[in-house]
Design a protein around this nucleic acid. Structure first.
Lengths: 197, 197
DNA sequence: CGAACGATTGACGAAACTCAAGTAGTGTGG
DNA sequence: CCACACTACTTGAGTTTCGTCAATCGTTCG
């Protein structure tokens, strides 16, 4: 058994940076986290989102290749990797988590490679709703337009325009700050809908 | 110890399909394999390439969510997952492989989300050269324009035009069928160059 | 030889980006 | 409580990149 501690991060606070040493396991207890990379041009690409129950990275010895930042107030359980994984059940969980993330990132690749801006945003709303455990047909989006754009490989203007259009067309309604009610598209063009099926 | 057998696949032959049962481990002995998904529209997105030493998927119980097809004559070692992984060293290899693929796919996401067509192709040449163990400055590309496009999230016409331009500008030379010599870009805009650093 | 497949090239159009200006919100200090 | 600063967001105009459609050419393999 390894050391275990809990830490709380404020909205916008860095949890770890690319280049730091792995070894510890980070498990989200509450809140939401974004994982991202920064390239030479200073551009940010958000790789994935993580919610309660998710492990953030899987580096036991190596160097972590991405950044993790709290999107909301977030509580993280940090434990010693090697120690924790001496337990077979923990090891199985670790591998399952890796597999899940691999699947998510594959969906992300497909989305970025083959979808239009509008389709990406549709997928994103479903994804975010699921990831944040929102009530059906509702999404809470603790992300700025820029962050959404950085997840979807778009610009913030494009994201803003699509939101504006959907609000105009009554496909989307603002029910509270940062919270929307929306028409799930027909039967989900969603990469995710298919993944669930 | 589990059962182990070797199988040889011809160029273009399917190794497994999305929807099939996991359980067996596939390890590439020689050749090259592409992993891809097909979406509702019939569009193909190539997720990753695999070469000698690589495991193709990591599903022990679940359903595989992608297709695997031989790009060249390919020899695969197929072994029983549960049996093989009773060995701790094999388990460590398995997890390392997963981690590597996770890293590759993250690079892929960043490339698709933030790079222009030309930049993607630059990254791809470096990637393919490394993946196929080509001599420095040379790449053997056992892929059609369509396959390259499906990897990069582009159309075959766009890929063709960029190749044509580079040949015209003497940045690229055809030294044998499907084999090119090329000028590595300044110090590699390469997502991969950075990964190696 | 000819069919089939892959690659090239051109003309055109559409989707998304860039640049720019202006409008909410939100939090802070007087 | 209001004024200010700061950040997020919106909207418009113009440009660019890449995709679409279509015709042609080259290669390979029965």
């Amino acid at each position: 058994m390894g050391e275990t501690r809990h830490t709380t991060y404020r909205k916008g606070e860095a949890i770890y940076d690319a280049g730091s040493r792995g070894g510890d396991l980070f498990k989200v207890c509450s809140g939401a986290v974004m994982l991202y990379t920064i390239d030479d041009d200073g551009g940010r690409q958000i790789i994935d989102l993580a919610g309660p129950g998710d492990l953030l990275h899987f580096e036991l010895d190596g160097i972590v290749d991405h950044f993790a930042e709290a999107l909301t107030e977030t509580e993280i359980m940090i434990s010693d990797g090697a120690g924790t994984l001496s337990d077979p059940a923990a090891r199985a969980f670790f591998v399952d988590q890796m597999r899940d993330r691999l699947a998510m990132e594959r969906q992300h690749i497909t989305m970025l490679g083959r979808r239009t801006a509008q389709e990406r945003l549709e997928v994103f709303l479903d994804y975010a709703a699921e990831r944040m455990n929102s009530a059906p047909g509702h999404v809470e989006l603790p992300m700025t337009r820029q962050q959404i754009a950085d997840f979807l490989g778009l610009t913030l203007e494009t994201v803003s325009r699509i939101f504006a259009r959907w609000l105009r067309e009554d496909r989307l309604h603002l029910v509270a700050p940062k919270t929307y009610r929306y028409q799930r598209s027909a039967d989900g063009i969603g990469v995710l809908a298919r993944a669930a099926a």
